[in-house]
Design a protein around this nucleic acid. Structure first.
Length: 570
RNA sequence: CGGGGCGUGGCGCAGCUUGGUAGCGCAUCUGGUUUGGGACCAGAGGGUCGCAGGUUCGAAUCCAGUCGCCCCGACCA
């Protein structure tokens, strides 16, 4: 028989002060509300309230997965090294991968994701196209040995992830599985109360060609994205956008003295042109050791992810290297650089005919330089990070920028893993083919943090009903009073009978303490039972999110709250 | 991993510069007074000063080391 939780029994030690270690609202509040505790850097214990919310998020996920015929399984957290060697990721994945040995010196990894395990599982079982498609998923702890775990649950080393993998016979099939999963992810975000945007993403370490991330919009988000009124949205690292070109002054190639600091801002100010009319030079050493000079519109940055695609794992040149290649810090440019330097430029600059560039001489720039005439660009690449104001690749209008928390991501993998691991099935003609795969992750614990990030105020958390640890808190101000306590208890029982999750603050604390904790823990509705109101047959119902309070007759409050709560459960 | 900062009762901090054997607020326990927005009075318990060395008659304090944590950078759910 279900009952209500008594605050006096609830293991949720609250903190009056902000913990010194926390920076973000979600981190501070989850700690202060007694929901999580740190065990070590990036490792958190979930206390009862957090666990209840996590289970609700998982329930939403399970319902949406069931709706698209994905089946839940559970594979071991630990993965034998051979599987990772098979896929090639044993070497490709960096120090983020936690490797371990058993007593027989056999090597294993603590799974940061489970493409290998799932692929290995099905390669023994799925042999025919008739058995496809299949999507399997699990909800499990993952471990990634992050260089710098931070922000509480936002970037832990161990975290809860839902990971799904689809196996199809054809590319079209894979796309259908991918789209079903993507649509489910949008519904999951919505049901969890997240304002999230699907954005075009880079596929990163996972591999494959097409990927979308769901970004929960939040100032505290670590990711930057651009979006357009037409519906287009992309991670700045993945966005290929239009950058309108501004020409530099003049068309004749001429060296000019520029007695200003070696920065684009000061150069633009000195020349009386916009930063974009200047050309920014960025010197790096590509993975193969080639020195590369990247030329960009002056107001744009070199995008790390795009640069890695183009140059492999590159290093920024230090001053010594610059000097060795004839480049002068602050005044770099393609003219006068060593012949070994490979000059590349952002694709946006391809039609530009007047470049304001460094002269590779302290205090001098060159204006009116023209590629093809005054210097050579060997390759035109997409290198610049997108930013606010760039043109939408879909409709051409100016893009807006925003920050977000990446709560989930979907990938089309194609045959990357199935081919590497020899996972094949027989098609209609009896020909062995590799599976067309997709993979789909949701950061479950990160989702919890994102919800708090989006739903809080200066007093605490404001849980959306769908993921709230409890739905209603009853606050009897006098636990000894022979009117107040029975009224509170009666309402609690009535709500429990109506299927509502209830906490009763039965502690012998002063009103202020109870109110403060109630606001901090942030259950969606508070029922305040005070002496005067109860004597008149009323209680006060407070909506945590809006702060709105209404007096409701005691004998109507169960119906009143049931209606509100149930309608918001989603 | 590079740069910066911090480790002192459960939590938040002072003390360190200028060595002399540890203090404040909150929390906890007891008794009393309070009781609609984090009460008050009285009393009590609780600290190998991160760890292990060195200097010194004497180290929380000075020196060198080590471990841990936090913040900024590069990676990701």
């Amino acid at each position: 028989m279900k009952s209500y939780m008594r605050m006096s029994k609830l293991y949720a030690p609250t903190l009056k002060e902000d913990p010194a270690e926390a920076e973000l609202a979600s981190h501070k509040l989850l700690l202060r509300a007694g929901m999580i505790r740190k065990t070590a850097a990036g490792l958190y214990s979930y206390l009862p309230l957090a666990w209840r919310s996590l289970l609700k998020i998982e329930t939403v996920i399970r319902e949406e997965m069931e709706a698209i015929d994905a089946q839940e399984i559970q594979v071991p957290v630990i993965v034998p090294a051979e599987l990772w060697q098979d896929s090639g990721r044993w070497n490709a994945y960096g120090p983020e991968l936690l490797r371990l040995k058993d007593r027989h010196e056999r090597e294993f990894v603590f799974g940061p994701t489970h493409e290998e395990t799932f692929t290995d599982l099905i390669r023994h079982e799925l042999r025919s196209y008739k058995q496809l498609p299949v999507t399997l998923y699990q909800i499990q702890d993952k471990f990634r040995d992050e260089m710098r775990p931070r922000f509480g649950l936002m970037r832990g080393r161990e975290f809860i992830m839902k990971d799904a993998y689809s196996f199809d016979a054809t590319v079209e099939g894979m796309q259908a599985s991918y789209n079903a999963e993507k649509d489910a992810y949008a519904r999951i975000c919505e049901r969890c109360g997240l304002r999230a945007l699907p954005v075009v993403a880079d596929s990163g370490q996972i591999g494959g060609d097409t990927s979308v991330e769901f970004m929960a919009l939040a100032e505290a988000g670590e990711a930057e994205l651009v979006w357009c009124d037409c519906g287009f949205a992309a991670d700045v690292e993945a966005a290929t956008v239009g950058i309108a070109i501004e020409e530099g002054p003049g068309t004749e190639c001429e060296k000019i003295a520029t007695p200003c600091e070696g920065s684009i801002a000061s150069l633009a100010a000195f020349m009386g042109v916009s930063e974009r009319a200047c050309r920014k030079s960025f010197a790096i050493i590509a993975e193969d050791g080639t020195p590369v000079l990247c030329l960009l519109p002056g107001d744009h940055e070199l995008n790390d992810v795009k640069a890695e695609h183009a140059f492999g794992h590159y290093d920024v040149m230090d001053e010594e290297q610059m000097a060795a290649y004839g480049l002068v810090k602050g005044y770099m440019g393609p003219i006068g650089a060593d012949a070994r330097v490979r000059v590349v430029a952002d694709i946006a600059l391809k039609d530009s005919k007047s470049w304001l560039i460094g002269a590779n001489e302290e205090g001098y720039h060159i204006k009116g330089a023209q590629p093809g005439r005054d210097f050579e660009v060997v390759e035109w690449l997409d290198l610049a990070s997108a930013k606010e104001g760039d043109a939408c690749p879909k409709c051409g209008r100016a893009l807006h920028s925003a920050r977000g928390i990446e709560v989930s991501q979907v990938f089309q993998l194609g045959t990357k893993y199935s081919e590497a691991m020899g996972a094949t099935f027989a098609d209609e003609n009896g020909v062995e083919r590799p599976f067309q795969m997709g993979c789909y992750g949701i950061g479950v614990s990160r989702t919890l943090a994102a919800v708090v990030e989006q739903h809080h105020d200066e007093h605490g958390i404001c849980w959306p009903v769908c993921v709230a640890p409890y739905e209603v808190e009853i606050v009897p101000l006098e636990t000894a009073d022979d009117l107040v306590w029975p009224a509170a208890e009666g309402i609690a029982k009535g709500l429990v009978d109506a299927g509502i999750e209830v906490v009763v603050d039965d502690r012998k604390e002063r009103a202020g303490v109870k109110f403060a904790d109630a606001d901090l823990m942030g259950f969606p509705y508070q029922v305040v039972c005070g002496k005067r109101a109860v004597k008149n047959g009323n209680v006060e119902v407070k909506d945590r999110a809006t702060g709105e309070r209404v007096e409701v007759p005691i004998d109507e409050v169960v119906a009143y709250l049931s209606e509100k709560v149930v309608s918001q459960r989603l």
